[in-house]
Amino acid sequence: MSNLYAGSGKINESVKKRKKSQLKEICIRLRRNRAAMFGLSVILLLIIMAVFAPFIAPYNYDEQNLKMANMFPGREHIMGTDNFGRDIFSRIVYGSRISLQVGFVAVGIGVLVGGTLGSFAAYYGGVADNAIMRFIDILLAIPSTLLAISIAAALGPGLTNAMIAVGVGTVPNYARVVRASVLTVKEQEFIEAARCIGVKDYKIILKHIIPNAMAPLIVQATIGVAGAILSAAALSFIGLGIQPPTPEWGAMLSAGRAYIRDYWHVVTFPGVTIMLTIFSLNLFGDGLRDALDPRLKR
C-alpha cells in the first residue's frame, strides 16, 4: 500500500515539471515570432500610454483654445488641433484609456457570459445545449455591428452602456468557441476515467476541461479585444455610446468628418491609431495561436 503513495508523489512532480516546460516552450516559440513581438510591444506601449496619460500628454484632453482651432501639425501641437482647438495628440493619448477599457471589459463580459453558456451547453448537452444554442442563434442572426448599435441605442449613451453593447455582441462568438473546445475535450477518455472514480462535475470542469479549452479562447479573446475596440469606435462614430468631450478615437473621427476637405489631419491621426492598435492586437493574437499549437502554424 505504501508503494502507491510513494509513487504518486514522484508522478505529481514530474507532471508539474512537464507543465512548466510546456509553458516555457510556448513562451520560447512566441518570443521567436518577431511579428508577434512587435505587436506585443505596441500593445504594451499603449497600456503605458493609458496608465501614464497625464504625464505623457502635453495638454488636457478637453482644453479648448478656439484661437488655435484646426491647426496643422506643428511644434506646439505635434498632431495639430481639432475644431475646438484641442490638442489631438493629447486626446489620442487619453483616448487610449477609453479604448483599452472598452476592449478589455467588453471581451471580459463576452468571455464570462459566453464562456459559461458555452461550457454549460457542451458539458450537459441535450436540452440545455439545444436551448442555449438557439439563444445564441438569435444573437447571431443579427450582424454584430447592427446588434451593438441596437443595444447601444436601447440602453442610451455612455461608456458603460457602450461596453455592455459591444460585450453582448461578442457573447455568441465565445460561446461557440468554448462549446467546441469543451465538446472535444469531453469526448476524451480521461474525462470518463475521472468520472468513474467519482470526481465531482464541477471539479472536472475546473481542473480538466477549462485548462484544455483555454488555448483557443485566449487567441479569440486577444483578437476579440481588437474587434471590440473597432465596434466601440464605430458606435461613437455614429454618435451612440461614448459622448463628447470624452476623447474616444471613433468619436474624434466623427467630429473631424465635417472638416476633411480642408483639414485632413483631424481624421488621419485617430484613424491611424485605431488601425495600429487593431493591427498589433491581431498580430499578437496570430502569434499566440501559432505558439500554442505549432501544428496549426503556417
Partner: peptide, 18 residues
C-alpha cells in the same frame, strides 16, 4: 491582408474620400 482586416471601414471610407 492584416492591415486590411485591421482598418476600420468607416475610416477607410473617409481616407478614400480625402
Amino acid at each position: 491582408a492584416l492591415v486590411g482586416v485591421s482598418m476600420p471601414n468607416f475610416w477607410q471610407g473617409l481616407i478614400l474620400i480625402i
